[in-house]
Simulated assay, not measured.
Amino acid sequence: MDDQVKLAFEKSKTGDKDERYEAYQYILSETEQRVEWAYEVWDQLIEDLTDKDNHQRSRAAQYLANLAISDPEMRIMNDFPKLWEVTKDKKFVTARHSLQSIWKVAIAGKPQKEMVMEYMVQRFENGTDEKNFTLIRNDIIQNMKNIYDFDNDEAVKQTAMELIDTVEDKKYQKKYMAIWK
């Protein structure tokens, strides 16, 4: 890991608001492609998923989701439940940012995609008792669209269509369908 990335991780936690945001943007940008240093920060990020600061939890979740493509040992397969927990965070903004980035785990490989899809389908079907469940469902459908846009897997699209079909409220059914237009 080069010094610039190390400094970004430091500032992501300790800098002032502008420095933290700049560092956050830099790290997300760096992790859009494979990196060699994923395991240098992996364990700390897993730990940060339960940090008392919701911003740290959110950033850790987003960084890990991005780093799934840089995980040849497939650690994400064991660590995913910890990452998924942040998508249910008590702070809705933290939960939502985490959920919106979860699709990036799915593009790391077939087993990862199958796991992420399974978690999302289960949440879509069984999450109606959650506060803001229509937004959560929207994010899940958007995640599926993002996965589909990445690899054109018709099975992902078919799953999304089947889930949308189960929505009884026509207003939301229409809203979710609009994501696929």
Rank of each mutant, 00 (worst) to 15 (best):
S98Y: 03
A68W: 08
A155M: 09
N146A: 13
M115W: 05
K175W: 09
K145E: 04
I27D: 01
M1H: 03
R34W: 06
V93W: 00
W84D: 00
N138M: 13
D2V: 12
G15Y: 09
L135T: 07
Y172P: 04
V86G: 11
F92K: 11
T87A: 13
T166W: 00
E30P: 11
K104M: 00
D169C: 10
A106K: 02
S101N: 14
L7Q: 12
A61L: 12
K88S: 07
V121N: 03
V41T: 09
W42G: 13
D71E: 08
K11D: 05
I27C: 10
A60I: 09
T94P: 07
N146V: 07
Y172C: 10
K157Q: 05
K17A: 08
K171F: 04
D149T: 01
K91A: 10
E36L: 10
L99F: 02
Q56D: 11
M77C: 04
D165A: 13
I136P: 05
Q112M: 03
P72T: 09
T31V: 08
A155I: 10
V5H: 07
Q158L: 12
I147K: 05
K145N: 11
D79L: 05
Y119T: 01
E19D: 13
M77H: 04
E168D: 15
N126G: 11
D3V: 09
Q112H: 06
K91N: 06
M117L: 14
S29P: 09
L7K: 07
P81E: 02
D151T: 03
T14V: 10
E130W: 07
R96W: 11
S101P: 06
K91S: 08
I107F: 06
M1D: 07
E36D: 15
K110W: 02
L7G: 09
K110M: 01
R20L: 05
D2L: 12
V93T: 09
K113H: 03
Q44C: 02
E118H: 12
F150L: 08
K157G: 04
E73N: 15
N126R: 11
H55R: 14
Q173H: 10
T159E: 02
E114V: 14
V35K: 02
D139Q: 13
E47N: 12
T166Y: 00
S12W: 05
F80V: 08
N152M: 11
K170G: 15
N143G: 00
Y24G: 08
W103I: 10
K175E: 15
V93D: 05
W37A: 07
Y119W: 04
E130A: 12
N54E: 00
I179E: 13
T159M: 04
L64A: 04
A60P: 15
T159R: 01
Q25Y: 07
S12L: 09
L67V: 04
S70W: 01
N152W: 07
E32W: 03
L67M: 06
R57W: 01
L28I: 03
E19V: 14
L83T: 11
A95Q: 01
G109A: 06
V167A: 00
D53V: 15
K6A: 14
W84E: 00
I69E: 06
K110C: 00
F80D: 01
D43G: 09
E22G: 14
L45E: 10
R137T: 03
K170D: 15
R34G: 14
G15K: 05
K171Y: 06
E114F: 13
Y39V: 02
T134C: 08
S12A: 13
D18S: 15
H55I: 13
D16A: 11
